[in-house]
Amino acid sequence: MATFHLKDRYGALFHLRRKRIRLLALGTSTAVLVDWLLSAGLCVGLAALMPAPVTIVALATLLSLVGYIWLALAITQAGPPASSPHLTAWDAALLSFVASFSVQTGAQLGAFST
């Protein structure tokens, strides 16, 4: 016969439910991060195929374009951008724009000069 602890207010089911929610959020965050890394890697690969003088400009442009695509995905499919416990398409769009602006700033500062 099962025994119940009267001092345990929440019970084992509550703790299992909390653990499952955390694991689902971690899986979602990992999936969005991997998808963003793949799209950024595609941008780097396409920019590497360009001639040397336009490589940095092409990379910044492609990253901005991917940012707008992630933003369109976030507007049409994702929920509100605030109070989400895991990464969403909004965060991926922000990462793309940050990467694009970082490449542009690095180009202005001469970090990519040969």
Rank of each mutant, 00 (worst) to 15 (best):
P80L: 12
R18F: 04
T88I: 05
A47P: 13
V54D: 07
I75L: 10
L37R: 15
V66P: 05
L38F: 10
A111D: 00
D35K: 13
F112K: 06
T61N: 09
P51N: 10
L42Q: 11
A111V: 14
S84L: 06
F14W: 13
A93Q: 02
Y10Q: 12
Y10L: 14
P80R: 15
T30R: 13
V44R: 01
F14R: 14
W70T: 07
S96Q: 00
A58M: 04
L87I: 09
V66Q: 06
Y68K: 15
G45W: 07
S39C: 12
D91R: 13
T30E: 00
I21C: 06
L26C: 10
F14D: 04
T3S: 11
L95S: 01
R17T: 14
L38A: 06
G45D: 03
F101S: 07
S102M: 10
K19N: 02
A99T: 11
V57G: 06
H15Y: 14
A48N: 09
A40F: 00
A111W: 10
P53Y: 00
L26R: 15
L33T: 14
S29M: 08
L109N: 03
K7L: 01
A47H: 02
A82T: 15
P81R: 11
K19R: 15
A99P: 12
G11Q: 13
T105A: 07
R20H: 07
A93L: 09
T61G: 09
P51Q: 09
L37Y: 01
L23F: 07
K19T: 12
A99W: 06
L26S: 13
L94Q: 01
G106P: 06
K19Q: 08
L63E: 01
L49G: 10
H15V: 12
V54R: 06
S83Y: 14
A107E: 02
L94Y: 05
R22T: 13
L71A: 04
L24S: 12
P51S: 07
T88H: 08
G79S: 11
G79L: 00
A107H: 13
Y68I: 14
L94P: 00
S100G: 11
P53F: 07
L38Q: 04
V34A: 04
S39T: 15
W90G: 01
Q77M: 05
T61A: 03
F97E: 03
T55Y: 08
R9D: 08
L65R: 08
Y10P: 07
V103P: 10
T76Q: 01
A58V: 09
K19P: 02
I75D: 06
G41R: 08
V32G: 03
A58F: 02
L94E: 05
L71E: 10
L65E: 04
D35C: 12
G27T: 11
L23K: 13
V98I: 13
P80F: 11
F97C: 00
G79K: 15
L46N: 05
H15F: 14
A25W: 06
V103M: 03
S29Q: 08
R9L: 10
V103E: 09
P81Q: 06
L46S: 05
V34H: 03
H86G: 08
G106H: 05
A82R: 15
M1L: 14
